[in-house]
Amino acid sequence: MMKTVLITGVLTLLSGCIPAPLGRYYKPLYPEPAATYSGDLCYGQAGAPAVLTVPLADGVTFTVRATSRQGKSKDGVRELDLRVRVPPGVRFQFTTPHIGVTPVEQGILAAAPLTMAVSATLRLPSRERIEPLRLAPTPLTSPAGVPIYSDYNSYTGWTPSWGDGFIPKAIHLTLPTVQRPGLPDLPIEVQAQARPRPERFPGESKGHTSLIYVSAASDARAADRHRQCLADGPPASACQAILTYDDGGFQIQDGALTLEGRGYVYHVEQGTPLRFDLTLRMQTPAPWQLADHQIRVRSLPDQTERIHTFAHLNLSMRYRVPLDSPVFLPVERASGPQTMVELDTRRPLGTQEGARYEVTLPAVEINGRRYTLPAIQLERHSLDFGLLPFNC
């Protein structure tokens, strides 16, 4: 018996979890045998069984949990968090924009039309004209052409690298020119110098040279942050961290368009490649496109050049629309076979934590078929024990 307990204890420690009280949480209850539970910590591997996932039809799933917002939300101490994942090629729609919540002790909470955050990643030809009003997996305007979206943001990116010993002391980086209707073409060019990465602790760079590429603008930006920190009054040692942890990089902004990027060589002695992390963001659904499909890095002053050619863009977009907006992402536009359109909506649960709530979801339509979903019960638990992580 003692041996069994010892083995169990060792396995528990190796799993990175320890038995402990789980605190107060709500467990969703749903009358569906295929529903599964996961923990609320360590990516679902530990913690309270507070996350309910339910498979619907044609690969659609939804996940429900009651998320604590104590001290951060003006609407209530908790919110219902409902997330839906829709595969490419599947048509999905909530039939109304309302989710009903009934605390057992308080009666029905007032309902207001909800919005949902839509996240999707599309794979598009590199020279395609990016028209979000046409490409987004939900309508962004009403039938009359009135915008119904908010908080629109999209981005694409590249991570070119060259492992052939190409480590210039100074570079001229050129990205494809951005073309936008009604605006001048926007060439994107950056000049930067290689510099050893600052040591984050004494002796870090002994036998290990890391390079970062720093532009004049990025130096000025870091200096401004450091100067502002000193003006605000923290100790000088704390403000020094701004310079110690600065990775250089560069940023170009033109209206709603922003390029963010950095270049680096992680370990010169081991021959790790010169690499760039580049992100192009657009905060409006206005059309745009790239003039070509090449990223060029030219060494200064010897003019040696490396070229990265890309055939596709992975365009990620996120925005909010009414909850009952229809959702559809064509298979040919999905960024990969595991791509999903993700929908996220939140509903306040009132200003008091009830012992139990009943959540009534609207009926849904999946590929033209209507499904009525049973009510979800949220049951408060406060004295449970389980496994909590200490190293995840």
Score class of each variant (00 low, 15 high):
Ala238Asp: 07
Gly145Glu: 14
Thr102Phe: 14
Trp288His: 03
Gly76Asn: 08
Ser68Lys: 07
Ser210Leu: 01
Phe94His: 13
Val54Cys: 07
Pro49Lys: 02
Gly47Trp: 04
Leu22Arg: 12
Gly165Met: 06
Lys169Phe: 12
Ala363Ser: 15
Thr209Asn: 00
Glu204Leu: 06
Glu342Arg: 10
Asn367Val: 07
Tyr266Ala: 13
Arg346Ala: 10
Asp344Thr: 08
Pro19Thr: 10
Ala170His: 14
Arg134Lys: 13
Pro49His: 07
Glu332Pro: 00
Gln270Ala: 14
Asp219His: 06
Ser73Gly: 07
Pro97Cys: 05
Thr53Tyr: 04
Pro287Lys: 00
Val64Phe: 02
Phe166Asp: 03
Gln338Lys: 10
Gln70Ala: 11
Asp224Cys: 04
Thr339Gly: 04
Pro196Asn: 00
Leu280Tyr: 04
Val118Ser: 00
Leu186Lys: 09
Thr272Ser: 15
Pro337His: 07
Arg318His: 09
Tyr266Cys: 02
Asn367Ile: 08
Val86Gln: 05
Gly39Asp: 03
Trp158Thr: 03
Pro103Leu: 00
Leu387Asn: 03
Gln251Lys: 13
Pro55Phe: 00
Arg275Cys: 12
Ser205Phe: 03
Pro87Ser: 09
Arg296Met: 13
Thr279Ile: 14
Thr12Arg: 11
Val64Gln: 02
Pro87Met: 08
Ala238Thr: 07
Pro21Ala: 00
